[in-house]
Simulated scan of single mutants.
Amino acid sequence: MTDPTSSRLPADADAASSASYYAARVVDTADIPVIDIGDLIDGTPGALDAVAAQVMEASRRIGFFYIRGHRIPTEITARATAAMRDYFALPGPVKAKHPVNTSQRGWMATGVARLEGSKTHDLKEIFFWGPERWAERLAARKQADSLIADNVWPDEDFARLRQDLLPYYDATQAVGRALLSAIAAGLGQDPAFFEHRYTSPMARGQLVYYPVSTADDEREERFGSAPHTDFGVLTLLLQDTNGGLQVRNRAGEWIAAQPIEGTLVCNIGDLLNRWSNETLSSNLHRVINRSGKERHSLVVFFDPDPDAIIDPADLGFPGGREKYPPVTTSEYIHGKNRKNFTQYGAVK
């Protein structure tokens, strides 16, 4: 199967070097599996163990898998994606009324994200949000921890964003809890292991807009999103039909995570890789939009309570403490944010 974007290769002398920059092999479900979690969501007897086995295989091998049967109503997804597209179509000055802050809330223009190790900034534009409510113990710590924050919604200009996004956000968290029960079981723990660390989760949401990559971008090796691993525990991604997500496998080969209708793409993040003493893989991935159309994605990083302690010993890996001492969710995410987003003033 050939890359459908191959006809858009740069026509100049840089074509050969550009080809290595974006190339990715189109794969089938043997590489990134599609896992049906419908029976798990429905509570069908035996489903937990069946899903756990499939999630463990994918999470150990490549750290990525698709899920179908997630039971998120189509109308909720449609409302959220329509609101996302309409939000990004707003004039820049309107979105700029709520610029991203060091609580990771608000609108981030192109050029603010520069991921660790990249040659230049990313092309992406992002709107960030998080929980609307916090547990009382966490709300009392808002002044001490900037990630325990209030959302910044453009209600005066675009109230639909909050109204149409939050039902999807809540539904996605329910899916995340089900998957974490399977991951806990797959690691030999009580399926409720993560529940005690997710009483008021720091679920971080992002709407992401990717413009079309140009020949100039490709000469500069500028990505929609440069190669990176996700910071947290579990990522749940709704991508549109335009493609562009690529994952690096254990052989060091980039493979295309093609859009599959009705699915979410899930992947393991750095915190769960650390928590599991590297049993579960947090793999590099990137986005380059060569589709000729604007690309949109809706992401929820389903992370634990800000004060949850991430300790490999708790997941049955006491030796992991030598490499990964206990850390709170907030401490770890703060550290990664400071290295990847220029609003913190420390990205080089």
Rank of each mutant, 00 (worst) to 15 (best):
Y198A: 10
R197A: 13
M202H: 08
S225M: 12
F223C: 02
L237E: 06
V233C: 14
T229M: 11
V233A: 08
R204C: 09
A203H: 07
F223G: 01
H196F: 09
G232L: 00
T229L: 07
A203E: 06
H228K: 04
V233K: 02
S213T: 15
P201L: 10
A203M: 08
R197T: 12
Y198L: 14
G205N: 03
E220S: 12
T199D: 15
A226V: 03
L236P: 04
M202V: 03
H228E: 05
Q206G: 02
D216V: 10
V233N: 09
G205Y: 00
E220I: 06
V233Y: 03
G224Y: 01
Y210H: 10
L207G: 00
Q206R: 08
A215H: 15
V208H: 00
T199P: 13
T214F: 12
G205A: 11
T235G: 10
T235L: 11
A203P: 07
P211E: 10
V212C: 14
H196C: 09
T214R: 14
R222T: 02
L234V: 07
L207F: 01
H196R: 14
F223A: 03
A226R: 02
R222A: 01
E221W: 09
G205S: 10
L237C: 08
R197L: 15
Y209A: 11
E221N: 12
V208Q: 00
F223M: 03
G205W: 00
T229G: 15
Y210N: 05
Y210M: 05
E221A: 14
L207E: 00
H196W: 11
S225I: 09
M202I: 04
F231D: 01
S213L: 08
D230W: 01
R197Q: 14
T229H: 09
D216H: 09
Y209S: 11
H196V: 12
D217T: 06
H228D: 05
T199V: 13
E221M: 12
R219W: 05
R204A: 13
Y198M: 13
